[in-house]
Amino acid sequence: MTNNPYNIRIADEDDATEWDKIVEVSDQATIFHRWKWLKICEKHSDFSLAPLICYNNIEPIAVYPLFFLKKAGLKMVFSPPPHLGLLYLGPAFLNSESLKQNRKESYYTGTQKAVDNYIKTEIKANYINFSLSPHCSDPRAFKWQGYEIEPNYDYIFDLKSGMDKLWKNMKKNTRMEINKTKKMGLTIEIGGQEDIDTLHRLVTERYGEQNRNANIPKEFLIDIYSNFRENTRILVAKYNGEVLTANIKLKFKNEELSWIGSPKPKNFTPSPNMLITWEEMQDAYDNGMDYYVQMGIAGNKRLHTFFSKFNPDLRIRFNAKKTTPATGLLESGYKKILKPAFEKYRS
């Protein structure tokens, strides 16, 4: 018998409406927390979804989606699942910003203990990896439960300051190159589902040039676009009728995310990605968004300098990882079992 007031249960389809209500009012939730999005992820991955609703006694206080896989002796838990373009997920608490600090810390630590107990007793995981929402800025509950904490980074633009200020804040050379691409006849158009084929092909080709694999399934992107039409928009950069590059962006609450795409085209200078980035920002502003986010780019040593020319703000989020001694040694040593598994399943 335990006096711990924090408990969890696994949600099912009958809970979908309640789940999405929590997501809608949570200040930590993202579009990736939506019930339908999670089920689409499960459909297009090898992982099984365990959608946890967390309670303080009988009061729901958070949703906590887990994805787990048991393979070749590995019992892995991820949130989000890898290779689907989700850079973050993890828990989303209700009204976290309005809670007093002592109540907030109690919720975070109590819930994480309950979730860890579920992972230990039900899944028996030997590898756990959580990439937390950027709105979950306090990773101490994970640290105190034995997780390794690492920072990750996004670039964020405050659209409330107005487009004139954002334009003037760019490097002069960046403004000149954007204007040059316009004078050359480059156009940015709103695309449709038919452009997902082109986008996926361009991304796959670009990755191939770098001896990398583009692991996001095209069918997954089509499924997301079909089910989240109000939240997704495809921008296509064309020159003389030819698609040079394209990007999928997402809007949720007061943010717009530059999500998947913008592969660098061959033999076109200056890069059309400068214009497509600027047009994405303009489109987000015109649609009443408060913030525009370049996901993950700020943490990429090779790519960050391209987008830092726009002089965005830096946003920090956190990754939390826990391994058993055995899997930790194997991972760090790149041994025979874990190396191919982590290359395949880790984003």
Rank of each mutant, 00 (worst) to 15 (best):
N4K: 13
N7M: 07
I10Y: 11
D14I: 08
D15I: 05
W19L: 13
D20L: 14
I22P: 00
I22S: 01
V23I: 12
V23T: 10
V23P: 01
R34M: 05
R34C: 02
F47I: 01
F47K: 09
I53Y: 12
C54F: 00
Y55C: 03
Y55M: 05
N56F: 14
E59V: 13
P60A: 10
V63M: 08
Y64H: 05
L69V: 04
L69T: 01
A72S: 09
K75V: 03
G85I: 00
P91G: 10
F93W: 09
E97T: 14
E97P: 14
E97R: 15
E97W: 13
K100N: 13
R103H: 04
K104D: 01
Y107T: 03
Y107C: 06
T109N: 11
G110A: 09
D116E: 11
H135K: 11
A141H: 07
F142P: 00
Y147L: 10
Y147S: 01
E150I: 07
D154L: 06
D154F: 04
Y155D: 03
D164F: 07
N173I: 00
I178R: 03
T181L: 05
K183R: 13
G191N: 02
Q193M: 10
E194L: 04
E194F: 05
T198Q: 03
T198M: 03
R201S: 00
R201E: 00
R206K: 12
R206E: 11
L221T: 02
I224S: 01
Y225T: 05
N227M: 09
N227P: 09
R229T: 15
N231R: 11
T232H: 10
R233E: 15
V236D: 01
K238V: 11
Y239A: 09
N240F: 11
T245N: 06
I248C: 11
I248F: 09
K251G: 15
K253R: 14
N254E: 13
N254L: 05
E256A: 09
S258T: 09
I260F: 12
I260C: 12
G261N: 04
S262H: 07
S262T: 09
P263K: 11
K264P: 00
K264R: 08
K266I: 05
N267K: 15
N267S: 14
F268N: 02
P270I: 13
P270W: 15
S271V: 05
S271Q: 05
S271G: 02
N273E: 01
T277W: 11
D286I: 11
Q294F: 06
M295C: 08
G296E: 03
N300H: 12
K301E: 07
K301A: 08
T305N: 15
F307E: 02
K309S: 14
F310W: 08
D313G: 06
T323A: 07
T327N: 10
E331H: 13
A341D: 01
F342Y: 10
E343C: 05
K344M: 04
